[in-house]
Design a protein around this nucleic acid. Sequence first.
DNA 1: ACTTTGACCGATCGACCGGTCAGTATCTCG
DNA 2: CGAGATACTGACCGGTCGATCGGTCAAAGT
Lengths: 212, 212
Amino acid sequence: MKSRLPTNRTCPGARQILDAALEVFAEHGYEGASIHAIAQRAGVSKANIFHHYASKEQLYLAVLRNASRSWSEDLAHVPAMPGGFPAQLQAMIHRTLQHLMRENAQSRVVLREMLENGALRGRQLSEEVFADNFEIETEIFRRAQADGNLRSGVDPVLAWTMTMAVCAFFFQTRDVMRFNPAYPYAESPDRYARGICDALLHGIAAPRKTLQ
Amino acid sequence: MKSRLPTNRTCPGARQILDAALEVFAEHGYEGASIHAIAQRAGVSKANIFHHYASKEQLYLAVLRNASRSWSEDLAHVPAMPGGFPAQLQAMIHRTLQHLMRENAQSRVVLREMLENGALRGRQLSEEVFADNFEIETEIFRRAQADGNLRSGVDPVLAWTMTMAVCAFFFQTRDVMRFNPAYPYAESPDRYARGICDALLHGIAAPRKTLQ
DNA sequence: ACTTTGACCGATCGACCGGTCAGTATCTCG
DNA sequence: CGAGATACTGACCGGTCGATCGGTCAAAGT
């Protein structure tokens, strides 16, 4: 009988297939990824893939699920980190950037899934994951506002959005920006994180001279 | 003989094909878009597409070129807008968000092309467009810093990056966020633009009480 | 020792892919 | 009225797609 899920944790073949599928999906997208290419990279036969996963879509969903879990696990305990609000924001940016770059393929698949809203493939899945992380991470900003560390006029949701946006944008444009000599951050994400954090906290407008 | 470029400005068929291709490419990506689907949406035969465009890739590049030109034209005269730096930043954010949403399909194709760096399809093209807009738009921040309106500790390039990031992120996550009741901005981009602009200018950190 | 089970494979299916080609309709120019 | 160029089409090509088939093989159960 055909198994609908990776049958066993210790089954080596299914894991190899999942890893290979992650890379191929990340590189070519869902439609551009062929089962043949995945099978080749995994070193198994094409038919074996359909033995472990019911269809291409199920395999893709398994990859998405894996990536989402990895993201949640990696970012979950940021709220519990020590230090004041600036230190936590710094940690959040640093962690997010680091995860995006270390788990490059996973990040690419997830981000791509969000852009392609038209396809209903992993929409519910990404909504769930997004909502989960949204809940956890905005809590940091809400608490900071309650503690008087986030400016009272700023919506915590907006602050979270900006933080995530600068991280995602860096990751997405990095490969293009790398060849732009006027953009110095492609190779130094740490410097980017520090600059972003400072600008986010204290703003980019010059202080009013009348008050200085 | 087969024409390698859209032969004539006034030829109606080529224009219909280009429009249909834009939508299909935006919806399914390069690999997922089939010539058959494009032909159907354009109301022409499949072979006719290859009469006006030498190949699927040439058609895609024409779509990309069109989208890039549209973007540049729409955003080019932001630097010349009247008002101080805050007003210009506001205008830049507003214009960018508005263009992303009005030219939804074009924006989606361009953004997708940047994420898929692996494919060398329109990489050179997107690099050129990116570099062009980069040059024009960062100039706003450089001039603001020279005029003493951008805080001296902030890199103009970083300020531009943050501005573009929040716009792109809003556009990309909008369809997912729409179903998140805790996210109030999906349906009100103007409110988002104002909030972002304020937070960017004045920061999200609470003012030091010792100095207040 | 015999059966069952699940991992795995080569061969193959029908559908669809990008692309070609011969041929037709339409228009322009002389 | 032709002659030639262009817009356009239906039929078709080789190849690849996701998916299925019958079958092999080694390990586990009894």
